[in-house]
Design a protein around this nucleic acid. Structure first.
Length: 465
RNA sequence: GCUCCCAUCGUCUAGCGGCCUAGGACAUUGCCCUCUCAAGGCAAAGACCGCGGGUUCGAAUCCCGCUGGGAGCGCCA
């Protein structure tokens, strides 16, 4: 096996923000492809924008990747560590006459750009310095001497064959007047020197691709295989942004989503396998195929994410779920001392919550010292009639040494037989007394979990409401 | 404005010329279960496959045009 045939892919975020949903999906498809092909997944930090790049964001991106489970085999490489390499490449193009100095000022270029736009034309560099022979003093940028005619074509795994007319392109700047290289240039140099075989990225880069191909060709370097992934939109079909709510993967972590659920959901945005919706990480790796990825953008749907999360959550043991929920209970200011109690309590609510946070919220009543009764619930069920029921029940329950479900059931049945009330009219006041609301798991179960002491306390409090 | 990309139920998607009276999933509605709410089970509704032309015995599937949406056109990445 030679290195050339082995798949090498990279995820190359710029640390100007934390890892967001769109970036995570790009990372995911790269990672899945690498793992499926038994190739190498590389993390590269594109931090040449020194104004906006920060260490915090770099760390945050890596934390997000780790949380999602995207382990990388190489890196993180930082572009800022590779400036010498870019410099050499620029020099080489200069030496070979494939690049030239451009003395046009940023202001001058901007004016021309506006003028062309106003004239209804595509703003392109006019080639003013392309053939100038002198080398005056003063700042200059370096531009690629791109072909004026012909066609640059790419064969994209997702999009197929795409042709661009070279006359639509212009001589792009590859080095700024301060000597630093620009994005399109660094990507190519990095991808070549890192032996990247497949460039998998968002389709917002599709229009950059022919420019990059021109750079590969200027160096006579082999062009990698491209795969441009469709974007992810918000409900308004606009590119996902903060306006659409949570976009950072850390926010999903904080909302109590499981990483494998987020990954599963993201994978199904653009990719599919038969009629299957739920995949384990291993299954995704096994079944993932870039050729199957669709072309059209997809809308991010939190509802479905929630369902997927619930499906994954269902696979864990009660104990494991409790472990995961406890930090969220702490987030609500609730301390958990008895782990076995917590496991039973949370288990009783399992199918009622889709996220760990929801589970913590609906299980919270088990851990509170004092129950606040919801006004509507109390008004409806803790009237004189309800309280009478509670008093009768209290008599029965207080005689039990401990509250097992069957024993509790007997007490309820006795009360029903004695009073002629319907189960609903007995259960609801108790439910309000125990939880403060009209919604909870089966009432016998709730009582048995809470235990005699808490139950009697809560009954007393409700009776005194 | 110019260039490139995209277009199947509200949403995610299956479909790659006849198996489609277009399948599945989320969401929605109804029923069952039932002490509430869920979960689960069953069922329904929901897409004249963006529109218009072709090609073909036959098109959601191929071709062209149109419309709509998106992206790019930076000394940002």
């Amino acid at each position: 096996m030679n290195n050339k045939s082995k798949v090498r892919v990279r995820f190359a975020p710029s640390p100007t923000g934390s890892l967001h949903i769109g970036g995570a999906r790009t990372a995911l498809f790269n990672w899945l492809f690498a793992r499926h092909e038994k190739g190498t997944f590389i993390l590269r930090i594109e931090d040449t924008d020194r104004e906006r790049s920060t260490e915090e964001f770099t760390k945050s991106i890596m934390d997000g990747m780790k949380w999602l489970g995207f382990d990388w085999d190489e890196g993180p490489y930082h572009q800022t560590d590779r400036m010498g390499l870019y410099r050499e490449h620029v020099d080489r193009l200069m030496k070979e006459g494939k690049a030239y100095r451009c003395y046009c000022s940023a202001e001058e270029l901007e004016t021309k750009r506006q003028a062309m736009l106003a004239a209804g034309q595509k703003p392109k560099y006019d080639g003013k310095c392309r053939d100038r022979k002198d080398q005056p003093e003063g700042p200059y940028t370096i531009r690629l001497k791109a072909p004026l005619t012909g066609i640059t074509a790419i064969d994209d795994i997702c999009r197929g064959h795409i042709e661009f007319e070279n006359k639509e392109l212009d001589d792009l700047i590859i080095a700024r007047s301060d000597g630093t290289p620009t994005y399109n240039f660094t990507v190519v140099v990095d991808d070549v020197t890192m032996n990247i075989t497949h460039v998998i990225r968002g389709d917002d880069h599709l229009n950059n691709t022919p420019r990059q191909v021109l750079i590969y060709e200027a160096f006579d370097y082999p062009v990698p295989v491209f795969a441009h992934l469709p974007m992810i939109f918000g409900a308004d079909k606009k590119k996902l942004s903060k306006r659409h709510g949570a976009t950072a993967v850390t926010e999903y972590q904080a909302m109590g989503y499981l990483p494998e659920a987020v990954v599963n959901y993201l994978a199904r945005l653009g990719w599919s396998y038969k009629d299957q919706e739920i995949f384990s990480l291993e299954e995704m790796i096994e079944k993932f195929d870039l050729n199957v990825v669709g072309k059209s953008p997809s809308v991010f749907d939190t509802e479905k994410l929630g369902w997927v999360n619930g499906q994954h959550l269902a696979k864990y043991s009660d104990e494991r779920v409790a472990e995961m929920v406890i930090p969220f209970l702490k987030g609500l200011g609730l301390e958990v001392n008895d782990i076995k109690y917590a496991a039973k309590a949370i288990a009783s609510e399992r199918e009622r919550g889709r996220t760990l946070k929801e589970l913590a919220e609906i299980s919270a009543f088990y851990f509170r010292d004092h129950i606040d009764h919801d006004l509507n619930a109390a008004t409806k069920w803790l009237g004189e009639k309800g309280k009478e029921v509670l008093r009768t029940l209290r008599d029965g329950l207080s005689k039990l040494p401990d509250l097992s479900e069957p024993e509790v059931a007997k007490v309820f049945e006795a009360v029903i037989a004695e009073t002629g009330l319907k189960m609903l009219d007995v259960a609801q006041p108790v439910r309000v007394a125990m939880t403060g609301t009209t919604v909870s798991p089966g009432i016998y179960l709730v009582l048995s979990i809470l235990g005699r002491k808490r139950v009697l306390e809560r009954l007393d409090k409700a009776i005194a409401y």
